[in-house]
Amino acid sequence: MAKLKMFMYKVFKWGLSVIGLTVSITGITGEVSVNLGSPLTESEISRVSITIFPNGHNLPKGQGSVKEGEKLYVELCSACHGESGTEGPSNRLTGSIGLFSFMDPLRIMRIQEVNGLLVMSTGQQWPYATSIFDFVRRAMPHYKPKSLTNNETYSLTAYILYLNDLVNKDAVIDRKNLPGVEMPAFKRYVRAWKNKSAADDFIPRP
């Protein structure tokens, strides 16, 4: 009896797929298609599509300089990240107090010296420079996220890179040259998550 039911059910399911019925039955197969979504237009997508990728995909037009960035930084960022990007109280943006080994005699002192957010930094830990643009534009300044223009974001990104000795004082950053900035963490970054085809979704720096 059970076998017959199963057979009937399979036929039924096969039938559905042949006629192309989208509404199937919940709870029996886990394969449900309800289709209550509405089409999303290109212009709706582009308004909210703010993610920047390591190869530069989705970086906007515009540019910004270290010089402009410095002015903005003092005005909008230094209160939380410190004058030189190292003092906090919010996350450190450049340098580090170093990795300390278990055997390090100064370890206890160094751990007690700073809060965890000030040990490592954006410049030491992030493998791609594009992520700085992405994060600053969506999330900073912390009390007023998404208030920066694209040009201001380029400038602030340039200034953070400058604080990390990754570009020089006259640098101007835009969507062409940002993906090419090599971060020190790039060579050290490894992925714990491995796909069967991990190699082809690892992004080489352009």
């Binding site: 993610t51 990728f53 490592m120 992030w126 493998p127 992520s131 992405d134 979704d201 690892f202």
Partner: peptide
Amino acid sequence: VDAPAYTGHDSGVYTQHL
């Protein structure tokens, strides 16, 4: 997408030093 974006939290706070 076909590859990760290395968002801020993919990159900094949620990584470990080995």
